[in-house]
């Protein structure tokens, strides 16, 4: 019985992200998701794909470090379904992503605290409308 699904993590520079994903698209990798993580002084994006001939469903993860204030290219041109995750990454983590095919401009998840998953971004870019969350 196979217990664990294999994983393959690969670090990718932010500049090379779009090309790397374009290469995967060329090789017919299927897109799975984008996940952001807040680190101590930057953020990390994890792009996940599955190869068309993946053995035991091996998942390919591209790990991209995003310094505060950096902009990330959208991959919706290659994988249209990514728009959900890119909008989510912006709304919850405050990471700027440019060129999304369906850009909600921060209105996709209308959460009351701004960028709730990334306290640093919330501090640096306080809410525009001055709408404060009423949490006890």
């Amino acid at each position: 019985m196979i217990r664990f699904q294999p994983n393959a993590f690969e670090a990718v520079e932010l500049d090379a992200l779009f090309e790397t994903v374009a290469d995967l698209r060329q090789r017919e990798y299927r897109f799975v998701q984008i996940c952001a993580t807040t680190l101590e002084d930057s953020c990390e994006l994890l792009y996940t794909f599955i190869a068309p001939d993946a053995i035991d469903g091996c998942l390919t993860g591209l790990v991209v470090n995003v310094p505060d204030g950096a902009s990330v290219p959208s991959i919706t041109e290659l994988y249209p379904a990514a728009f959900v995750f890119e909008n989510e990454t912006h709304d919850l983590f405050g990471i700027d992503i440019y060129g999304i095919n369906l850009d909600f401009q921060g209105e996709f998840y209308k959460v009351s605290p701004k960028f709730p998953m990334n306290p640093r971004a919330a501090e640096q870019r306080p809410a525009d409308e001055g709408k404060e969350a009423d949490h006890e």
């Binding site: 019985m1 196979i2 217990r3 664990f4 699904q5 035991d56 469903g57």
Partner: peptide, 10 residues
């Protein structure tokens, strides 16, 4: 995903 045969699916 059941095709991957992870766990009892295998």
């Amino acid at each position: 995903e059941r095709l991957n045969g992870i766990g009892a699916y295998g």
